[in-house]
Every structure is written in structure tokens, then in C-alpha cells.
């Protein structure tokens, strides 16, 4: 038996914070690749602390639905899961390359394959592109468009910016979009100046966040100039400085994110059969609402 546990931040205040986690878990449940699938949270229940005991499988794949490596993936999650002998060195990561470490959860005596975060997996680049397709309604979007990948950015954790740069570079190398830029909320180059950083008339703005919340539904739309007051909403596309801004909201709400969760588990040795292909196909048929309300 094998179990999948998706660990995410969750929120005491915002019910939307855990919605993508539940949605991706349901997608994976329906794909039937794991005997058991659980969601666990830092701020909701089940807590990281008590999730592993809720599964019967002896082999548990833990995938953090986090954007980058850092405090949560390196310190909080392993501590709360009681992963014996954990050390960030076990990932041997350059900041975006964590893949897997095999450890034991001491309260239950189960084998835990602790995976790198969803946000830094190569397949996340596909989700960013899928998000651009969703928001424009054009499966071939690219020509004549710029793509701006937006991160929180923080001086406290340089890996946060690394993850953004990593995907931006990979998408740029594909040559699909006229331009690909990485922008940040609290460091240079800033998302406030998005129209200064691109030449094209159309620009898709994709925030690399797990869930919609304060940052993606309040800060960024106002910073970009899509609206003066987030409460009044904004248009998609919206007009800013003579350019059309296609603002997608959090990338983690894109159904294809479920595939990245599966990729992480498969990289760690989980037998997921053809679930990755099936999730890719099925999520391609789902349309996501990319609106401000």
C-alpha cells in the first residue's frame, strides 16, 4: 500500500487558502493512483502533526504544496511530521533542485518519502503556461504576448526568487512567448512596473502562489494598476498604460497542478501508473474561472 499526503499552509482566516489543496487531492483520488490520499495543513486540520497516523499504508509520499524551498519545507514540515534524522542537506539542493529524501516518521514507524516542493518542479513551468492558456482562452497563446511570472520575493529567503527565475528562464528558452520576465512584490524588479518591463501590447501576469488570498486578490491587482480598490474587482484583460494585462490569479489554482504533485511522488518512487497522463488530459478539459470575483 502507498499513501499520498499533500502538505500545505492553510489559513485560520481565509477559507480559500486550502481550496486548491482539496481540489488537487480530489483529482488524484479520482485518478486512483494511491490507496489513500490526505491533505494536511500548518493552519488547518488535519495538522501536519497528526496526518500520517490517519493512513494505513506503510509507505507514505509527502508532497509540499509550497512554492519554494525554505523555512516551511526545510524546518517546519519535517519537524512537525517527526521525520527522524532530517537535515536539509538530505535534499542536496541548490535552492530549486530538492527531489526526495527517505526518512522515518517516529510516531508511527512508517517510511516517509519527503519530496521537494511542487513549486520548484520542472513541470510547474507547464502549469504556468497552462494558466496563460486558460486566462486567454487560447491553447496556442504565445506570439505577440509577454509572460510575467510574479513572486513574493523576500530578502529573508533567496530561494523564493530563485524559483521564479528558474521557471521564467525555462519558459523563455522554449521561445513560445515574445518575452518572459520575472517580477516581485517586494524586491526589484517590481510587479508595479510590469508595463515598463515588456514591449508587447499583451502581457499575461501569473503569480506563482499556491492559493488565492490577500496577495493575489488584493495586493497584486492594485500594484499592477488593474484596479484602485480590489473590492470593486478588475477586468480580464484589463487596460494599464495602454497595454492589455491578462491577470490569472494564483497559479496553484490551475487544475494541472495536480499533475505536478503526482510527478513529485513519482520522482520519489511512487507507482502512479498512467495517472500523470490521465490527470494531464482530464485537467486540460477543465476550464478554470480566471476572474476577479
Amino acid at each position: 500500500m502507498q499513501a499520498l499526503v499533500i502538505v500545505a499552509h492553510g489559513s485560520h482566516l481565509n477559507p480559500g487558502a486550502s481550496e486548491p489543496t482539496h481540489a488537487h487531492a480530489d483529482t488524484i483520488r479520482d485518478a486512483g493512483a494511491f490507496d489513500e490520499v490526505r491533505e494536511a495543513f500548518w493552519k488547518e486540520e488535519p495538522h501536519f502533526r497528526e496526518v500520517i497516523r490517519t493512513v494505513e499504508a506503510d509507505e507514505v509520499f509527502v508532497v509540499p504544496l509550497f512554492i519554494s524551498e525554505g523555512y516551511f519545507t526545510e524546518e517546519v514540515i519535517p519537524r512537525e511530521l517527526r521525520l527522524e534524522d532530517w537535515d536539509p542537506e538530505r535534499w542536496d539542493s541548490d535552492g530549486t533542485s530538492a527531489s526526495e529524501a527517505t526518512l522515518e516518521a517516529t510516531d508511527v514507524g512508517k517510511t516517509v518519502h519527503y519530496c521537494g516542493p511542487v513549486g520548484t518542479h520542472d513541470a510547474m513551468a507547464d502549469v504556468i503556461v497552462r494558466r496563460a492558456e486558460s486566462v486567454t482562452g487560447d491553447p496556442d497563446v504565445g506570439e505577440g504576448f509577454a509572460l510575467a511570472v510574479v513572486g513574493h520575493g523576500t530578502e529573508r529567503n533567496e530561494n523564493s526568487a530563485k524559483a521564479i527565475e528558474y521557471h521564467a528562464t525555462r519558459i523563455r528558452e522554449r521561445g513560445r512567448f515574445d518575452e518572459v520576465v520575472s517580477l516581485f512584490m517586494d524586491e526589484q524588479p517590481e510587479v508595479d512596473d510590469v508595463t515598463d518591463h515588456v514591449e508587447t501590447e499583451d502581457v499575461v501576469v501569473v503569480p506563482l502562489f499556491v492559493a488565492d488570498g490577500y496577495h493575489t486578490q488584493e495586493d497584486i491587482p492594485e500594484d499592477v494598476g488593474l484596479t484602485d480598490d480590489f473590492r470593486t474587482g478588475w477586468d480580464v484583460p484589463g487596460e494599464v498604460d495602454g497595454k492589455r494585462i491578462w491577470y490569472t490569479g494564483a497559479v496553484g489554482t490551475e487544475p494541472l497542478t495536480a499533475e505536478v504533485v503526482l510527478e513529485r511522488a513519482a520522482d520519489a518512487g511512487a507507482d502512479v501508473g498512467d495517472a500523470i497522463e490521465r490527470v494531464r488530459l482530464e485537467t486540460g478539459q477543465q476550464t478554470t474561472a480566471v476572474t476577479s470575483d
Partner: peptide, 11 residues
């Protein structure tokens, strides 16, 4: 039960 009261059965 797991959705409504997570981990209560296990504990």
C-alpha cells in the same frame, strides 16, 4: 468522519 473531524478516529 475524516473530513469533518480529521484525525479524531486515529487518536
Amino acid at each position: 468522519v475524516e473530513f469533518v473531524y480529521p484525525a479524531t478516529v486515529a487518536n
